[in-house]
């Protein structure tokens, strides 16, 4: 698969999750990058990516979550990314879930804010991930949760 351009879709909520996601974008520099987030934030560090905005989702708002899921379903169905990468939170879980259904490989990088336990969205996403990463070595579990470093 080396030297083969893939479509990589990176999805996260706005704020700290997006800041972290942007810091690992250099990993996908050789591919076509799609960045999907919930806020109209500055896109510094996302040069070259195609940007899409989605509604915020959380377990506290069912309607918002449904709107977010619909938009993600539409984007993933239309763009058919080969890989989906997320740092969280709820929108990332939805993207991983939907992406897996459409045959994408899925990667979760749990937020560095989750020091003592994996995030709730991460735990929900884990069964649907091909690669699941924590940023804290203490949270790694052999063959299930890997740690390859962090952003802090």
């Amino acid at each position: 698969m080396k030297n083969h351009r893939l479509r990589v879709m990176c999805v996260s909520s706005a704020g700290g999750h997006l800041v972290q996601l942007k810091l690992v974008l250099p990993a996908f520099a050789e591919h076509d990058l799609i960045l999907v987030s919930t806020g109209e934030e500055d896109i510094e560090g996302a040069a070259g990516a195609t940007l899409y905005q989605i509604p915020e989702a959380s377990r506290w708002s069912r309607i918002q979550t449904m709107l977010c899921a619909w938009k993600l379903l539409w984007l993933i169905w239309r763009l058919r990314p080969s890989v989906i990468v997320s740092t969280g939170a709820a929108p990332g879980f939805l993207a991983v879930r939907i992406g897996r259904f459409f045959g994408a490989r899925t990667v979760w990088l749990d937020s560095v804010a989750n020091v003592e336990v994996i995030s709730l969205a991460g735990r929900l996403a884990q069964p649907h991930c091909d690669l699941f990463l924590t940023q804290w070595p203490a949270l790694a579990v052999e063959d299930e949760i890997h740690c390859a470093g962090g952003v802090l």
Partner: peptide, 23 residues
């Protein structure tokens, strides 16, 4: 410059390019 650990970027890159996680 804020930057992710190079090991993390490499791991993600390898996973996307080659479908493997070096462990």
């Amino acid at each position: 410059m804020n930057a992710a650990d190079p090991s993390l970027v490499t791991a993600l890159q390898r996973f996307v390019d080659l479908g493997e996680f070096p462990d």
